[in-house]
Design a protein around this nucleic acid. Structure first.
Lengths: 329, 329
DNA sequence: CTGAAAGCGCTTACAG
DNA sequence: CTGAAAGCGCTTACAG
């Protein structure tokens, strides 16, 4: 079955292909009488015409695809929400939001840019040089390292504020010796490093010693030696975990070692995982509303893509970080 | 900076564009002398030539993109692993694997097919008719409802086997009155319905009454009334939860109501979430190795795309489902 | 074995 | 206000 082309629409409407193009692209620099415009629109509708993007891309050298490169390891579930919001907002502005897993191509991603000549490439992490180079060379806008502190203007979210908020809460509860449960996986460094930085800043500002930091793996075993360090050697009374999973591991270690939570050791996590609300005692945590950063990033993407942002006003007034006090502090 | 085209390569190699195309596409129906072939390859290499996919797509009417439509709600984290494996295997066969969130376009996805004229469209759930129709009409291969029981040949994974395995384990532990904790979110029906079916089958085969099924939301509160139903009214001694999150909710409800696990009520989940290994008592669960279904699906995709599968042999011998016995059974 | 030429469907100077 | 024509970069009959 043959594809329906703009030529077909032109014939159906009794005009030229040029006119069809002008009408369908709503070119403001052309004056089209309403009747002609209606005729074209009606014909396109009747035939079910969908412009063939490959041809348009070939012609213009650029598609309206936004390509998002995801890290190869599973990240917090809350992140799904982020991607969904991003897709929605960009979708409303006529951009398709596609996600790739960077591990997808053993060879560098190079050829993928060619496949979908995107308008913008967004990398949540750092795009390795062999991948970034061809993007740059092709003149494609690249938004890199979205969640790094130095890019906080892009997402409106500074990870340091997370660690800062944790410490503030713990200190308000009367704690003076703070521990920090960092991640052990270098791929998650982009999250735990700035959060630790923020926690350290907050301690200093509040006149406390910097947090006693221990890397914790996602296992009770690993968390046990961390808990030992905190309670025995350093007399730490409260721990900020860089995420809920680490907090859960610490909580499990306390349970198995008879350390009372929150009496002997208070714990606060980050992410507001469902699982954290269902432990005993229930986990105090910080919820991150990723909807706001997603809208913020969308606006930036549309800006570099040279499109008018269709982002509704007021969204940036919503709070990103919310303390969820439960039973572990 | 101008794009490097096959014409440039032809000039550099001193041959025609036709020859360049033949060499670069490795056309077996053409005989090219080794020297010519080398010259072309060297020239392409030297210039850093990357074929412009839009032109190729325009010409052939089809790209080598596989488009995967994801559900709009966050699903199990293990799923990420599935997508990564899928990307890798398809990547090795020269296909780019892109993911979209179906909520992305308020209008039907229709225009997206046009954007990236994919070779195959894969929908993890059901693709609504207004979206499926244009795909079919465009003659694009569509793989739908990947995880439904009737498609178990595609993934090699029958969700019913999951529920079956849960019941078998519980019965081996001596239980005779089985409960089933289903999901409450209709969007997850594709997972809990077949699992319940499998559990019911297993009960019948083992001469037991069908499981007492209660929908459970992801909250301790919701799980409490479920636990009441099971322990008070029905004398159920063991519950199969459709996933770990429901199992965790049930565990939390037991904790708060003084129901002893596993003595009063045994619990088994599905997914092997990290959080489940860190509760007290630690959750017995079923781990799903999604690597195998991902490879299986890849093979199917490559088949419908008309490509030779580069799937290594032996992968289908690995077990998909593994019982992870811990402390709740 | 190799090349000149056509054509995929679109947009856009350019000419009326 | 509208249309004929060129050209984006590729592949493939077709002719030598």
């Amino acid at each position: 079955m043959a594809r329906i082309t703009s030529k077909d629409v032109a014939r159906e409407a009794g005009v030229s292909q040029t006119t069809v193009s002008f009408v369908l692209n709503d070119r403001s620099d052309q004056t089209i009488p309403p009747e002609t415009r209606q005729a074209v629109l009606a014909a396109a509708q009747r035939l079910g015409y969908v412009p063939f993007a490959a041809a348009r891309t070939l012609r213009s050298g650029r598609s309206n695809v936004v390509l998002c490169v995801q890290p190869d390891f599973p990240i917090a579930q809350a992140f799904e929400e982020f991607k969904i919001t991003l897709s929605q907002v960009l979708g409303e502005s006529g951009y398709a939001c596609l996600f790739v897993h960077s591990a997808g191509s053993s060879k560098p991603l190079a050829e993928l840019w060619a496949h979908v000549q995107p308008a913008v490439v967004v990398a949540f992490g750092a795009l390795p040089t062999p991948d970034a180079e061809p993007v740059r060379r092709a003149g494609i806008a690249l938004l890199d390292n979205i969640f790094e502190p130095e890019n906080r203007i892009v997402t409106g979210l500074d990870q340091r504020a997370v660690g800062r908020m944790q410490v503030q809460h713990l200190v308000e509860q009367g704690h003076e010796r703070i521990g920090f449960g960092a991640g052990a996986d270098p791929r998650e460094r982009a999250f735990y490093e700035p959060r630790l930085l923020g926690a350290t800043d907050a301690c200093r500002e509040l006149g406390l010693d910097p947090p006693i930091t221990v890397p914790v793996q996602y296992s009770t075993e690993s968390a046990r030696s961390a808990v030992e360090t905190w309670t025995r050697d350093s007399r730490v009374t409260a721990v900020a975990a860089f995420n809920d999973l680490v907090a859960l591991a610490i909580l499990a270690a306390c349970r198995s070692d008879g350390v009372l939570v929150p009496d002997d050791l208070a714990i606060i996590g980050v992410d507001n995982l469902l699982a954290g609300s269902m432990t005993g005692p229930a986990l105090t945590t910080i919820a991150i509303n990723l909807t706001v950063p997603a809208r913020s990033l969308s606006a930036k993407i549309l800006e570099v893509a040279g499109a008018a942002a269709a982002v509704p006003a007021g969204w940036d007034r919503q709070p990103i970080l919310t303390l969820v006090p439960r039973e572990t502090t």
